[in-house]
Write a protein that binds this DNA or RNA. Structure first.
Lengths: 193, 193
DNA sequence: TATTATTTGGTACGTACGTACGAACTAATT
DNA sequence: AATTAGTTCGTACGTACGTACCAAATAATA
């Protein structure tokens, strides 16, 4: 959940600032000038290193994908056993909602943009696919044919789990802060143990 | 799935055109002038009937909420028996994805906006809450304590189901058109029968 | 019919946007 | 040291935006 803060150059600084602006203010409200100002560079620098706005934001998505995937993969692989892996998966989403909600907001924002912008769609879709792949590999290894998963591919099961986590998390983010309970997520966990 | 096309006045015409623009081009790409032009009225008319852009789009959300809820409620109540109600619920989402994907895209778009704009958040959250309420009332009537739902409130179960449908549908919309299969949705249906 | 009230449509204001461009400056190479 | 390549920054262009405003037209009211 920790972004790289390496200041190896203005290029990284711009990218990190772009991420920061997007995750705190939202896609629709962020401009190239905002990013340049907050990064402490001139506007021309932004278009110098990243050709266009769309391209810059695509790079932000790439950064997010890399971090999301490596973090969740690490947490899942460090857990041993099916049950613990499930717990780790739920803990990841819970932590996301509690510790870093702005990151998840940005994820949702990009998902919405992906419905209209083909280049975004490609990126976000691959993120979902790879998340489903991780879930599948970590939780579906011993696909016991006796259970409810019998008739469906492990990938479909993974997509359903991922969808449930995603959709439930959105509802939790939207609900008023006072009555935030993770009961639906806990339920999902108990369902699949 | 059918919008009202009553042309009782310019007010309704503007609202319907706003919906049309939003659902086909997306939130970020629609302007007041677009709506005015496509509705065949002057720009001043839009601000005359709807004070601001935000207010106009809020009215569009209201329209969507009304239609979504009445349609899904009608379909669920016309079905008899738990199993048939589940089937009807899944059929609603499948039909949404196949017949009217732009409506669902707009729903997702508004959800993303709701994370940043408080007035939107209120509306979209109430839509989710009322959807969960409908699911709860139609499918959780005889909450048998012996099943897996025992320890959790019916509302949490409903939210999990709704989240799974929402999250899975998004993945289906994002995936490339060639390999669209409703397997995850079918799986969800079989899971809960 | 006279008068108000409501509606229509056109115009203009102020602002902000992404992008392009080109001088100055620095670093690297020969 | 000379020349080239890479980088920084300010500025400006063209466009588009939401909103405000107001005269003209229409409808409603008396």
């Amino acid at each position: 959940m920790q972004r790289k803060t390496d200041k190896t150059g203005p290029s990284e600084k711009i990218l990190n600032t772009a991420f920061e602006c997007l995750s705190t203010r939202g896609y629709a409200a962020v401009t190239m000038r905002n990013i340049a100002d907050e990064a402490g560079v001139a506007l021309g620098q932004v278009t110098y290193y990243y050709k266009s706005k769309e391209n810059l934001f695509l790079e932000v998505i790439n950064m997010m994908i890399h971090q999301y995937l490596s973090e969740i993969e690490q947490k899942l692989e460090s857990a041993t056993g099916k049950k613990q892996k499930f717990t780790a998966l739920m803990a990841f989403f819970k932590e996301l909602l509690q510790v870093n909600p702005s990151l998840f907001r940005l994820f949702i924002d990009f998902t919405a943009q992906a419905l209209w912008i083909p280049s975004f769609r490609e990126k976000v879709n691959s993120l979902f696919e790879r998340l489903a792949e991780i879930i599948e590999k970590n939780l579906m290894l011993n696909a016991d044919k006796s259970s409810w998963k019998s008739d469906y591919s492990p990938r479909s099961v993974a997509k359903l789990i991922l969808g449930a986590l995603y959709g439930t998390s959105i509802q939790l983010m939207l609900s008023s802060d006072s009555d935030v309970s993770f009961e639906p997520l806990d339920l999902a966990e108990s369902l699949l143990e």
